[in-house]
Design a protein around this nucleic acid. Structure first.
Length: 264
DNA sequence: ATACCATGAACAG
DNA sequence: TGTTCCTGGTATC
């Protein structure tokens, strides 16, 4: 399930299978069929990740857009053998390097480079991109009266953070999610940005979300269980202090936090 | 067999 | 603010 790290990892993993080759593009499920025909058999030049979005640069000048949303998933089969379709496959991309199937995306469409620019124009900086300018995100956080928990989910502020990383990034910085952005210090806000960069990069590397850093926050003996991956997200009690975790609805979703470690 | 839930976001009003 | 859409895994009957 996708936050920004998933998207960057997908671009990394799928590129060697598809980029630089002609790709057969189809839509077994049907809804992408008309668009698929626009790029069927065309060489794929690049897969570009930005925040939670993927862009497919085709050699004929068209640019595909995929947004996984909450349910979107890829299935990959390396090698030239094309596997049988399983389940609802909106888009299938197949080359002699491998086959990639996409199911359940919020968006899967073919457009122009201008369409791609328009989408990115609506997004804040992506902490995973080298060209990211944190100043843009920090300025928005600093001036907003909105709760920081809502701001971190807002893709116009910064692109790629989802419900897990927002909770965890606020936790390790001891910030209550309901605190307005403008009530945070510059130091706190830049620490949050740095945390998000570190966490997302680790997510790309691990190909999953593990935010626990035992060097930074030693976990009390007996508190940790095998398989723990977060401090507060989706937990009953705080990993560090055992206080019951609470949630507050922010940005339309439940934000997990520890009332002890993140006082108001 | 059915209900419900999930790391998301666009759109209506 | 509420509604809608996308899929599949797990829980519940």
């Amino acid at each position: 399930m996708p936050e920004g790290h998933t998207i960057h990892r997908i671009a990394k993993d799928h590129s060697p299978l598809l980029v630089g080759r002609p790709v057969a593009v189809s839509s077994p499920q049907g809804r992408f069929a008309a668009d698929a025909a626009l790029v069927d058999g065309v060489v794929l030049d690049r897969i570009e990740p930005y925040g939670k979005h993927l862009f497919y640069w085709w050699a004929n000048g068209l640019v595909g857009h995929v947004h996984l949303g909450l349910f979107g998933k890829f299935r990959v089969a390396a090698g030239p053998q094309v596997p049988a379709v399983q389940g609802m496959v909106r888009m299938r991309m197949s080359s002699d390097g491998g086959t990639v199937d996409l199911a359940g995306p919020t968006d899967c469409s073919i457009g122009s480079a201008d369409d791609r620019d328009a989408i990115i124009g609506r997004l804040g900086p992506d902490p995973l991109r080298r060209d990211a300018k944190p100043a843009d995100a920090l300025a928005r956080l600093r001036k907003s009266a909105q709760p920081i928990g809502a701001l971190l989910l807002d893709q116009k502020v910064l692109a790629g953070v989802g419900n897990v990383y927002r909770a965890e990034a606020l936790f390790v910085n001891g910030i209550n999610p309901a605190r307005p952005g403008k009530a945070c210090t510059d130091e706190e806000l830049s620490a949050v940005w740095d945390t998000v960069v570190t966490m997302l990069r680790k997510g790309v590397k691990d190909n999953r979300i593990i935010t626990i850093d035992r060097k930074r926050f030693p976990v009390p003996k007996g508190q940790a269980r095998r398989g723990d991956t977060t401090y507060v997200y989706h937990r009953d009690v705080c990993l560090l202090c055992d206080t019951p975790v609470r949630t507050v609805e922010l940005g339309g979703r439940a934000c997990y936090y520890c009332p002890t470690c993140q006082p108001r």
